[in-house]
Simulated assay, not measured.
Amino acid sequence: MPETRRNADLHVSSGNKPRWNQPATRRHGFHNAHRMFRRALSLRAAEQVVLEEAEDAALAARNEVAMLTGRAEFSALVVAEGGRLLLARHAADFPADQPHSIQSISKLTMHLIASRLIAEGRLDPAHMVERYVPEIGSGFRGAQVQDVLDMNVINHFSEDYDDPYAEVYAEEEALGFRLPEPGREEPTMLSFLCGITGDDLRNPGDTIRYSSANTDLLTVICDRLCPGALPGMLEEIAEAAGVEGCFHMSLSRKGLPAFSGGGCLTATDLARFGLLLVRVAQGTEARVGDTARTRSALSRTHRHLPAPRDHIRYADQMMTDGRWIGHSGYGGQFLMADTVSGRVVAYLSVLENESAFSAEYMADTIAAMEALLPPLG
């Protein structure tokens, strides 16, 4: 037998992180994640949405643009509206055709998929999780699907990025982001979820309990409802978005897409995805999602994020302030789609601190992006 060695990008070492997520090599990892997954699906649209270059000089001169693009963490900033590209800025080490890990912005694909299945009557958000996954463990048994959609389940899964041994890092084994310890079998998405434990799952507070495991569970549920159909559903989303490059998505050991954080897109294609969300919200896109469900997330009463992002509410795998819809991504990404003006702001960056997360950094990012939206009235 030939000599072998473990894949260095996925092997876990210092701080319980693989090389792609080590602070010193994280920027390279986020810029090349599409080449580092254990396995991945790559999709390209047959028809690309045209974005004509139409730089807005007043927008480009905004202090918020200077702040966002002047950071050491900056990778790209793209602003689009309709068929126009109003602003496009890329870091010197990040060309316009380079994919970037979008991490939890990927959850917006689950919003579109679950919304369509709910609208078609195949998924009932009022049902308990065990109706669809009878073997689920105590971490989700007794929770309503709607609470899973809204990040409103209290269990023992931790997404504390400051804790290098939090369950969110173990989850990476099931998503194809890291290798298990030598001699241990790579878990499936289902086996990982069934191992999560919990007691009273009800959320007694006003803030959400953010957990990427919720999205993984929705992925398993949707696969149970439509066996083998999820890659095709993602292809429909890529087609509807009209991406120019490839929509890359990490796959689990059993071939389930890692909708919780496995997506990679160029900055401009991320903006195209945001424009798709606008069309869904405005009722001009019938191929994916469900307009009524997306619109209801804007006004439905639901819990908010912790401070300093407490003006943002969470519903159906989306973040919203009641006007825009979008999502953040671990490491420094955000996608904001304004349902009123139709303007989309896509921001990519890579935090190089130990945890790859800062609530203050993300709050400042969101505030700056909000300032780039047209004023109401």
Results as ranks from 00 to 15, higher is better:
226 C>A: 15
204 P>N: 02
172 E>R: 15
169 Y>F: 15
117 L>S: 07
171 E>P: 02
130 E>K: 04
188 T>P: 02
177 F>P: 11
91 A>W: 08
119 A>H: 03
186 E>D: 09
229 A>M: 08
198 G>F: 07
128 M>A: 11
220 V>C: 10
107 K>R: 11
190 L>P: 04
178 R>S: 14
204 P>H: 05
87 L>G: 01
94 F>A: 14
146 Q>S: 09
136 I>E: 00
184 R>H: 14
210 Y>N: 12
183 G>L: 11
123 L>Y: 04
218 L>F: 03
208 I>C: 11
130 E>H: 00
97 D>K: 02
213 A>V: 11
195 G>C: 01
180 P>Q: 09
227 P>Y: 12
94 F>C: 13
135 E>N: 07
130 E>V: 07
127 H>Q: 13
144 Q>P: 05
98 Q>L: 14
149 L>Y: 00
119 A>W: 07
176 G>V: 06
138 S>Y: 03
107 K>N: 05
152 N>H: 07
168 V>Y: 06
87 L>R: 11
194 C>I: 12
139 G>C: 09
207 T>P: 03
197 T>F: 09
196 I>A: 06
228 G>V: 13
206 D>T: 15
102 I>D: 00
213 A>Y: 03
186 E>M: 11
96 A>T: 10
111 H>W: 00
165 Y>W: 13
132 Y>T: 08
224 R>A: 15
209 R>D: 14
133 V>F: 03
219 T>C: 10
118 I>T: 05
217 L>T: 03
113 I>F: 05
171 E>G: 07
184 R>W: 11
204 P>A: 09
195 G>K: 06
202 R>D: 00
105 I>T: 12
115 S>N: 03
174 A>F: 13
129 V>N: 09
87 L>W: 07
226 C>E: 15
200 D>P: 03
180 P>E: 04
95 P>R: 01
169 Y>D: 05
146 Q>I: 03
181 E>I: 12
137 G>C: 04
227 P>H: 07
100 H>G: 15
143 A>D: 02
178 R>G: 12
166 A>F: 12
120 E>C: 03
192 F>N: 06
104 S>I: 09
173 E>T: 14
197 T>E: 13
109 T>C: 15
127 H>V: 00
86 L>R: 10
229 A>I: 06
89 R>T: 01
172 E>V: 07
214 N>Y: 06
223 D>S: 13
171 E>T: 09
203 N>E: 07
150 D>P: 01
189 M>G: 05
117 L>V: 05
92 A>V: 14
126 A>P: 02
108 L>S: 15
108 L>K: 11
